[in-house]
Design a protein around this nucleic acid. Structure first.
Lengths: 214, 214
DNA sequence: TTCGATTGCGAGCGATCACTCGTGTTCCTG
DNA sequence: CAGGAACACGAGTGATCGCTCGCAATCGAA
């Protein structure tokens, strides 16, 4: 017995609750965003919230899963098959722009992605989210630089993800100068990745997207 | 009436309490580190803690001031007068190594520097800490690239500070591979700053965006 | 020695918050 | 229609935690 049978009404309630959680977490952060506030925002009682999410962490996990899916979808649309051979600056554009767009459209996600305010082990959903993003970046790096050892691919992807996360707050909090901060983020990522890229340039496989064995 | 007169015993107590706070915040983070736990760790009662620090934020501020001073001291020692003309990689070394060393020696500071778990306006000490670090970096950048507009100096310093903060957690949490992560951090910073550096070496193009004055 | 100021105590207050439970309502299915 | 399951309510519970308060001790200057 792991899952109750949901009615259509229940599915709608869960979506409402996730919407409300996104708003509340965006306004107050995860730690300060109370479950009662989420329930109130969704127009239901606290008891109803716990009918669908066993605890606050489950709420965060549901939200994180939304983010992962939205991001995967956005990237799906932004990549041609031959993306791995694009100029680095353009590749960074195609990675960063959808991630910024998703975060702008869904302010609640930042509170999950920048997960430092989550009590210890409750951070699990956030870690999975980080891992998902890093994995996506890592697969692009691996496709572009097939000769890079897997360990370095991972490290590079993690660093790139953390750079993104570090500047996300500033970017979302910016006003008119948001574009300038985004440009700065891209400069940082390009500068970080360019040396690796230059190394790989001479042994670039023409169209080897899939053969990223280590 | 802003400050009580402290006896020598009181000054010692304050130092003990800051030591205890550093340990507790390092173990549980700022939000989860309770003031009662800090008092207990220092071997005093909660009431005594509040004799010296009016509230939890004041405790954080005291700790942040310690960090700022320790970092300033470490950098004081690491810089010759002619530091601004060093090769970029070495300059980054001289900035980053002391900051890493200070953080390794004082694990409690990370909880303040990575301030995302601080309830909203309580983050003031952390912001000041960030600003102090960014200011230090900014002054080095300004000395190295005199013709860079002040706005860009600031932006660049903030981004570099945030990159550092983003990787600090990973670096402190790493084991044998800490050096590899530190190297990665330096690669990221050098990659980010190198293009500015190259431009500044000969002649900086007077700005396609028309922001030549400030 | 005297006396005010500083230091120290620790039970407990007040507020917050994740979560529960008894009860009633709506929906689906047979 | 019957009855079970899912949905919904919301006051309340138990635990946590920042902080207080009345009082005692120690100190330092006169």
């Amino acid at each position: 017995m792991t899952e109750r049978k949901r009615q259509a009404r229940g599915e709608r309630r869960m979506a409402q609750l996730l919407d409300a959680a996104a708003e509340v977490f965006a306004e107050h952060g995860y730690a300060k965003g109370t479950t009662n506030a989420v329930a109130a925002r969704a127009g239901v009682s606290p008891g109803t919230l716990y009918q669908f999410f066993g605890n606050k962490e489950a709420l965060a996990a549901g939200l994180a899963e939304r983010y992962r899916a939205a991001l995967a979808d956005a990237h799906e649309q932004a990549f041609d098959p031959g993306f791995a051979t694009l100029p680095l600056a353009e590749l960074v554009d195609r990675m960063v722009d959808p991630m910024i767009a998703v975060n702008v459209a869904n302010p609640g996600f930042k509170a999950l992605f920048t997960a430092a305010d989550m009590p210890a082990h409750v951070a699990a959903p956030a870690r999975e989210l980080h891992a998902a993003v890093a994995g996506r970046i890592g697969s692009v790096i691996a496709a572009r630089l097939p000769h890079l050892p897997a360990g370095e691919v991972h490290r590079t992807a993690v660093v790139a993800t953390q750079i993104f996360g570090a500047l996300l707050g500033t970017i979302l909090g910016a006003g008119d100068d948001r574009d300038a901060w985004v440009a700065e983020l891209k400069r940082a990522l390009v500068g970080y990745l360019a040396p690796l890229d230059a190394h790989g340039a001479d042994h670039r496989p023409a169209a080897g997207t899939g053969a990223a064995q280590q």
